[in-house]
Every structure is written in C-alpha cells, then in structure tokens.
C-alpha cells in the first residue's frame, strides 16, 4: 500500500502532547529585571537578520525559514519552544526567541580563542538558536527593547551553552560558546520577520 494517505502519515510530525509552554516575561526574568535598570551598553548600531531557524521538536534538526511569524508572549510559529516540545520546555524561562551573533560563529570557525582542539565550523542552525544576526551586540541587550523588522523584542537573559548541544553535535562547543552563546528574548510585539530585516535598539535603560 503506497497511496497518498500513507505518504501523508509518513510526513506527519510526532504528536505534541505537552501543554503550551509557560514563559517568563523577559523584563521579569531575574537577569532582565536588573539589567533594565542599569544604564550602559552599545547604542546606535544597525544590524541585520541573517538566518531564521526553527526545530519542530526537541532534538530535531533546525530548519531554515524564509520568513517567520513571531507571536507576542509565545515564540516563533513552528518552533519547539512555541509548541512546548523543546528539551527545556518543562522549565519555565525566557526563551520565546533566541539569537546568536554571526561574529561569535566566525570566531569559533577561526579557533579564536583556541579553547578547543581546532576550528569549529557550525553549519547554519546547528547552534540551535532561532535568529543568526550580524552587527548586533547581543551581550549588551539584556534589559533592552530592540526591533527586528516589524517585531519588537526584549532581552531577558544571556543564553548559556549547554552540554546537551555538545552531545547533539558531537562537537566541543560548550567552552568556546561560553559568554557568546547569544540572547534569550521575549516578544513584546509580534509580526513577520525575514532575513535582511534591520535590527536596531529602541530604547536605553529604564533608569
């Protein structure tokens, strides 16, 4: 039996049985709430969105999207953290959208600093962050509002590399990604984003 019915079944995603995820609002996160009141950080930058990636469920390979719908308070449609099927979904946190700097990936690719055996070239999306950006100082954006295209994001906390990612990739990325693993954000105002969208700071600290 090789009819269309079974073909569709073969294409179906595993059933998501977990409830919608509980998110910690970015500026209520322990890190974001403190950083919100502390002035400083880069201003006046204009970066660009390079790639959008989502994974349909925990451990699934990331898939690149040409455009993505961001939903305020929830995440990117089609992503495991939007659906509550991510590895860390059972632990409430700020992870509606995660970003990583292309500059950090470039540094890994040139083995800089030389923290591991050699250069690590990560294929796009293998870092498992949703948005790869260039020209955006992510470590400065905890407690800040910024826009990616028409979507307004709030920096909640720095992303932290996990051993799980090392296991998935079979690459020693934990130490080299430390402190440049990107930013976990909440979505203040949703919309559609596309690679090429500009990324700019909206306001400084709430001080």
């Amino acid at each position: 039996m090789r009819d269309d019915e079974t073909r569709r079944e073969a294409l179906a995603e595993p059933q998501a049985t977990r409830p919608a995820p509980k998110m910690v609002e970015a500026f209520e996160h322990a890190a974001g709430s403190i950083a919100r009141g502390v002035p400083g950080g880069a201003t006046g930058f204009r970066g660009v969105l390079l790639h959008i990636h989502v994974a349909p469920a925990a451990s699934y390979e990331m898939e690149e999207l040409r455009e993505a719908e961001c939903v305020a308070g929830r995440g990117i449609v089609g992503d495991r953290y939007f659906d509550g099927t991510g590895t860390y979904s059972p632990k409430p946190d700020t992870r509606e959208v995660t970003l990583i700097e292309q500059e950090a990936l470039d540094a890994l690719a040139r083995n800089d600093p030389p923290l591991q055996g050699g250069a690590i070239a990560l294929a796009p999306g293998d870092h498992r962050r949703n948005l790869t950006v260039r020209g955006v100082p992510l470590n400065h954006l905890v407690g800040r509002r910024f826009r990616a295209g028409e979507v307004i994001l709030r920096g909640g906390r720095l992303n932290f590399p996990c051993k799980y990612l090392e296991e998935l990739l079979g690459l020693p990325v934990y130490l080299p990604l430390y402190n440049r693993s990107g930013l976990n954000c909440g979505i203040e105002s949703g919309g559609v984003i596309r690679p090429g969208d500009a990324i700019e700071l909206l306001d400084d600290a709430d001080a």
């Binding site: 390979e61 998935l168 990739l169």
Partner: peptide, 9 residues
C-alpha cells in the same frame, strides 16, 4: 548515553 540529533531524511 548521549542525545542525538533527529533528521528528516
């Protein structure tokens, strides 16, 4: 044992 990537082949 380690986690492994799931791919849609």
């Amino acid at each position: 044992m380690t986690a492994r990537m799931i791919m849609k082949l």
